[in-house]
Amino acid sequence: MSQLINSVLVLLVLTGFMLLSSSRLAACIHVVAFQGVLLGLLAILMQHGELTVTGVLLPLSTALVKGFLLPWLLFRAMREADTVREVEPLISYNLSIIAGSAVLVFALWLGQRLRLPSQPPSSLLVPAALFMSFVGMLVIVSRRKAVTQALGYLALENGVYAFGAAVALRLPVLVELGILLDVFVGVFVMGIAIFHISREFEHIDTDKFAASTDRPR
């Protein structure tokens, strides 16, 4: 079982790197969607013992929302906004990968240092969760487009979800649903925002927003 969990975690780390190195927006969305499905799988795997109905349904709904619903929304937003399909990073892809490796080393180190109330089922769980959140932040700061910012936000949240799984083996149903709803609303709002921004300004480059402030010209 721990081998399976480990494999899923390694795959999650790899999706982080794919998110950093991919040059296509569509590929990035697919990667994040895959991450969502993996997270659902992870949550199911972590329930040692008997499988309860909620224990299966909740991860399943997570996987559905994160793996299908949200990506669909993003794709829609992308289509509506008619964006270029390239990611347009602020730093080069090679540098992104190197930064990702540095972040991974940091996450591994931090994961060893962190004292947790309960022992997680795999020593890789906490580092992987931290890594995913860090990658999310990295994507948010180093990419130009609003869609990628939404993606980074999702990846960050995925990390938080995995971290939650590491800290408490079974979260209260309500909390979990609450988080899910939060994210859903977040991405939904972002999607609408992207759509409207693009209609108003005919581009969605966030670094050009500076031009829309009241600075004297």
Binding site: N6, V10, F17, S21, Y93, N94, I97, S101
Partner: peptide, 20 residues
């Protein structure tokens, strides 16, 4: 221009393997 990136990925994969 993208080939170095692929090789960089190989380096990352291998270092991840060592770290496990």
């Amino acid at each position: 221009l993208r080939v170095p990136q692929l090789l960089l990925v190989a380096i990352v994969l291998a270092s991840l393997a060592v770290a496990l």
